[in-house]
């Protein structure tokens, strides 16, 4: 019998805090105990339980890539200040220690995607779960063919990872399209203005030998899927990562299931052909 207390988190020191957008921060975290860090590994798409000790736990993806963890032993998370835990996290300063339980859930099937064109479509605060995969793909760029990224937010201020967006934009081997909702643009905005589904239709990426990764608010996904279908993407080639409410992260606490599937164990990454067989409970 394994004697480890599965509820006890690792302690992580906040190495760097980046203000991404109003109310949105990224923490770069390093293991307080080097030994724990040496024994830790994760894969693209997995998530974690982050906690301010004394306030509680909150679930988000690991927003950084395993390829960066291998090199520099850090993980990053990006969160919006909304509830009790995220508000407490937002109060933290560099050097503070927070709790971290991970890795949980399944991963994006990157091995199977080798040699394919990859289309990333993200809306708002849903870029962080995708950023992990984007970095992974870019760090092993030769394994993949065309990389297209479509990212939309409510307004220019709400775009997260502005520095990286600029970096991706400059790369000749990445096609990045950014868009903001009508009214969200600034006078010097050079990207698109419009909702993600409409911009995707204009962008018209080929579905030939391609997979699409879509993540965003339910309403964005609802209207993006028909466009992808029109472009020829089949449900088994469209992936998303779900974020149902979770507490434990390992299939016991009872709240994240869609039918008999646990988002925390069988997901969070699902193809739309898998989701078609599940009840509409996500």
């Amino acid at each position: 019998m394994e004697e480890k207390n599965i509820y006890k988190p690792y302690l992580m020191r906040i190495e760097k805090i980046t203000q991404e957008a109003p109310g949105v921060k990224t923490f770069r975290l390093k293991f307080d105990d080097d030994e724990e860090g040496k024994n830790f590994s994760f894969r693209a798409g997995q998530f974690a339980e982050y906690s301010v000790i004394g306030e509680g736990e909150s679930t988000f993806c690991i927003a950084s890539s395993p390829t960066r963890f291998e090199k520099e032993q850090y993980v990053e998370c990006t969160f919006r200040e909304v509830g009790r835990v995220t508000s407490a996290l937002a109060q933290c300063e560099e050097g503070d220690v927070i709790g971290f339980r991970a890795p949980y859930g399944n991963t994006f099937p990157l091995e199977a995607w080798k040699g394919k064109n990859i289309l990333f479509i993200a809306g708002g605060i849903a870029l962080p779960p995708m950023r992990c995969v984007i970095w992974n793909v870019l760090d092993k760029r030769d394994d993949f063919k065309d990389v297209n990224i479509l990212y939309g937010a409510k307004s220019v201020a709400d775009l997260v990872y502005k520095h990286e967006l600029a970096e991706w934009d400059e790369r000749p081997d990445v096609k990045l399209v950014t868009t903001v909702d009508p009214g969200g643009q600034t006078p010097d905005w050079k990207g698109e203005v419009g909702f993600v589904p409409a911009v995707l239709e204009k962008m018209a990426p080929s579905s030939e030998n391609a997979v699409a990764v879509v993540c965003g608010p339910p309403v964005m996904i609802k209207f993006t899927l028909p466009v992808l279908e029109k472009l020829g993407f089949t449900p088994e080639n469209i992936y998303t990562t779900l974020e149902n409410r979770m507490k434990c992260g390992f299939g016991k606490c009872g709240r994240c299931n869609c039918g008999k599937m646990f988002v925390c164990k069988d997901g969070p990454v699902f193809s739309f052909s898998q989701l078609k067989d599940l009840p509409d409970e996500y």
Binding site: Y7, G56, C248, K252, G254, R255
Partner: peptide, 10 residues
């Protein structure tokens, strides 16, 4: 029934 919540109290 085993559904549970996890909270901090201090």
């Amino acid at each position: 029934c085993a559904c549970f919540d996890i909270q901090d109290e201090g």
